[in-house]
C-alpha cells in the first residue's frame, strides 16, 4: 500500500530548526527529518526522548565484569587451582585486568548491537533513499498526511511549509515494502 507524504528540504540547519518550530506550532505532523549530520537542538524541537541504549551498554558492562570475575575465580579456585609464584588461588589483583577488558568489550558490543537493532540498521538493510543529497547537503523533512490526505489539506500544509522556508515541496508515495 502506497501512502502519500509530503517532502521538502532546507539548505541550512538553522533554517531547518526554525522551520520545524513553525511546523510544530501549526500542528503539522512530522514523520521524519533527514540530515547530513546531527543537528543540535533538533531532539528538543521534535520532542525526542533520550535513547535508552546507554542502559543496554551499562548492563552489558556489568555482565562482562561479572562473567569475567566469576569465570576466573572458578578456574583458579574450583576447576584447576594452580600455585603461580606463590599467589593465592583467588588472586583478585591479577583478575582485575581481564575483568576490566571484558567489561569494556561487552559494553561496547551491547551498545552497538542495541543501536543497530533499535534503528533497524545492519549489513544489507534496505532503505528508502528520499533524496540523494541528504547525505550531502540537504535537510529533508517528511510530513505525515495519512490522517487527512485531501487535496485542500495538502494545499494548506504545503502553503504553511513554504511560508516557513521549506523548498521544493513535493507529494510522494512511500515505496512498496
Amino acid at each position: 500500500m502506497n501512502t502519500p507524504y509530503i517532502s521538502a528540504w532546507f539548505d541550512d540547519d538553522e533554517k531547518l530548526l526554525s522551520g520545524l518550530k513553525v511546523f510544530k506550532e501549526k500542528g503539522i505532523k512530522i514523520a521524519d527529518v533527514l540530515t547530513p549530520f546531527p543537528v543540535h537542538g533538533i531532539d528538543k524541537v521534535l520532542g525526542y526522548r533520550r535513547s535508552w541504549i546507554a542502559r543496554v551498554g551499562f548492563i552489558g558492562g556489568v555482565l562482562g565484569a561479572a562473567s569475567a570475575l566469576v569465570f576466573q575465580a572458578w578456574v583458579f579456585t574450583k576447576s584447576y587451582p594452580l600455585n603461580i609464584g606463590g599467589k593465592p588461588f583467588f588472586a583478585l589483583p591479577s583478575f582485575i585486568p581481564v575483568t576490566f577488558e571484558l567489561t569494556v568489550l561487552f559494553a561496547a558490543f551491547a551498545m552497538v548491537f542495541a543501536f543497530l537493532i533499535r534503528s533497524k540498521l545492519g549489513p544489507g538493510a534496505k532503505t528508502e533513499i528520499y533524496d540523494e543529497r541528504i547525505t550531502d547537503d540537504r535537510f529533508v523533512v517528511l510530513v505525515d498526511i495519512n490522517e487527512n490526505h485531501s487535496e485542500e489539506n495538502i494545499k494548506k500544509i504545503s502553503a504553511q511549509m513554504a511560508e516557513a522556508g521549506a523548498m521544493d515541496i513535493k507529494i510522494k508515495l512511500t515505496e512498496n515494502k
Partner: peptide, 12 residues
C-alpha cells in the same frame, strides 16, 4: 593506585 599496588604485590 592500582598500578602501583598490583606491581608491588605481584613482584612480592
Amino acid at each position: 593506585w592500582f598500578s602501583q599496588y598490583l606491581l608491588i604485590w605481584y613482584g612480592n
